[in-house]
Design a protein around this nucleic acid. Structure first.
Lengths: 361, 361
DNA sequence: CTGAAAGCGCTTACAG
DNA sequence: CTGAAAGCGCTTACAG
């Protein structure tokens, strides 16, 4: 192989092999027929020239880039990192590339990202939509024939395939463990984006969400699971046990938990995602509370430290990798033009029982 | 804006505006001149047609795709996720996309990934090389004019810009804290890829690495920092205090730590990265050891739980985001054809002192 | 300041 | 089974 700096094109390969560029393309791109004799000539020529196909040119010509775009909130979050990992694994064998962007859960950033990805002619889009009410940029993508699959949440009125978690069921199950152990005052710390105190108390009372269930943010769905578990047990929920966080950050989760612990004295706590759990744990440790003796705890998202802190923290483990694999699968199907109505694939989380639940004192 | 499914091209915009495609391109791509009157006509036409530039076509023509490729071990690792975040942030404003791939620290996978990225005509490559002895695919990339920047480690003989951490200095500093507190038997749990027991004992004795210092894997550099700290204090190191891990996994780190704790009874422990720290903590908790009363501990990589476990774990905090920003900056310069000899940018880690170091009993 | 024309590196009907 | 030719959607010298 000749290592010159100038890249060889199919034209040069064809010339050296003494065939047309069409034929050279057919053997190198393995489409169409070619006699074995010619195949060998072409491959040899390609080898000696160190030919590397220009996928950009191919994509430009065929209209398919073998690239998918992914827009998530923040790849630094273990949940999204896990999803991304699953996507990359699923897609690699197919020779696809993955273009990633962070939206920071911000609609403008999401719009810009989608725009860029579309202009780069991705074959499909995987999005964890920042806003759930509407997403013009995603409708626009679909209108221009770019398949979209949503993950973790679903925009109202955006009819696409989606991969979701059974948030209500998982939270319900976890909180039921607490109730079964005898807890009656169970605090919950959750993101609850865009909630006012009034929204929360209304929701706690009525359990009627403003949007259809499947268009709720995950943290709202988890709250619903919490409420349902209570109702099922005939327990009334004191709205002051339900804490939202001011900004989506560990320190805000910590403050919210501190307030909750000092003001309403719950005997158990349920945290609605990994970030909440970490913040809550900081507050718990800060107050010198021992788990489970002083406080029972169940967390959404199973983080490393839950395995070794104290007697272990019982947790709901989201199958992030599998979610990534599933969402990539669904997208690939659509890229392959498989028709059919939108499919929502709902994955189940695993409840990992450890030593953080005991009867209240 | 007209939302038809067929995408408008610059030809149609030009026709509607009554100008040539060249002119339309000049105003839409903001290169070259155009009178304000024409600018308006073209923009209006673009708006009514809902024109979106095809960046693939542009890239194909200009030879610059405004896309960079990134190959890291595993995006699920918080360290790489942090780097990727930094890269994405740095690059977004420039309208660049980021194509990510996992090598799983496997040379073949790395080669395939680099190959694919090159064929996709990325403008540059950021790689955390899987093997340090050589990397033909990266030399190949450079030979074909694709700038490469290395991060976290550097391949021998591959002269590129790089962003590295001062592993030796950081480890030295951390271990010195332990020594200053009076510890004489300090265990270390590290990855130490490709080491035999003999390699380790030789290295402990001679402190002469097989490769030049800067081409050592991070875990070896951290071990060196550990050794230097001992030598400086006039302390001899018992080679049985140095534990490598059989596979790079939490459970292997846990087993290695268990062996270390039961066999050699150290009074303090130094873990050489986040994964080692998590595994070690599982072993420590499993044995019911309390930190710092039963064992002092310092960890490389500052993980969330180190803030709230017990009295806190003192840790070395790698500036992963900054590393990502730096590596993207360096790459962007080369993409802009800035000449000059390869630059190695060495970042410093921060030592976060918490409550995990006390005098040995 | 603007336009006509060539061309980036492939693939794809269409002939033969 | 193979080749000549057109064309994907832009940008870029080159004229004017």
């Amino acid at each position: 192989m000749d290592k010159r700096t100038k890249k060889a094109t199919i034209i040069e390969v064809a010339r050296l092999a003494g065939v047309s560029t069409a034929t050279a393309g057919r053997v190198l791109g393995s489409y169409g027929y070619a006699s074995t004799a010619i195949q060998k000539k072409v491959r040899d020529a390609a080898d000696t020239l160190g030919y590397r196909p220009n996928r950009l040119a191919r994509g430009f010509k065929t209209g398919r880039t073998q690239t998918i775009g992914v827009v998530v909130g923040d790849i630094e979050s273990p949940f999204y990192a896990g999803i991304l990992r699953g996507i990359a694994d699923e897609v690699r064998g197919r020779g696809f590339g993955v273009l990633v962007t962070n939206s920071d859960e911000n609609v403008d950033q999401e719009r810009e990202a989608v725009q860029l990805l579309l202009e780069k002619q991705v074959d499909g889009l995987i999005v964890s939509p920042a806003a759930i009410a509407h997403a013009d940029c995603l409708s626009h993508a679909i209108a221009s024939q770019c398949p979209v699959v949503q993950v973790d949440r679903v925009v109202r009125g955006l009819e696409t395939d989606a991969v979701l978690l059974d948030n209500v069921g998982s939270a319900h199950h976890a909180v039921t463990q607490l109730i079964d152990a005898g807890h009656k005052r169970i605090g919950i710390v959750a993101e609850l984006v865009g909630a006012s105190p009034k929204d929360i108390s209304t929701f706690v009372r009525t359990m009627k969400p403003k949007l259809p269930l499947r268009h709720l943010y995950p943290s709202w769905q988890r709250l619903l699971g919490y409420l349902l578990a209570h109702r099922e047990a005939g327990l009334k929920v004191d709205a002051s046990l339900v804490r939202k966080v001011n900004t989506y950050s560990i320190s805000a989760a910590k403050s919210a938990t501190e307030e909750l612990l000092s003001q309403t004295r719950p005997t158990a706590l349920f945290t609605a995602d990994g970030l909440m759990s970490t913040g809550a744990m900081m507050a718990i440790a800060g107050r010198g509370l021992r788990i489970p003796n002083d406080l029972s705890l169940v967390c959404f998202d199973d983080l490393d430290w839950m395995k070794f802190i104290g007697t272990g923290i019982s947790a709901i483990s989201q199958p992030a990798n599998q979610m990534g694999v599933a969402v990539a699968e669904l997208l690939m199907r659509r890229i392959d033009l498989q028709p059919g109505p939108p499919e929502h694939r709902i994955l189940l989380a695993e409840f990992v029982a450890r030593g953080s639940i005991v009867a209240p004192v």
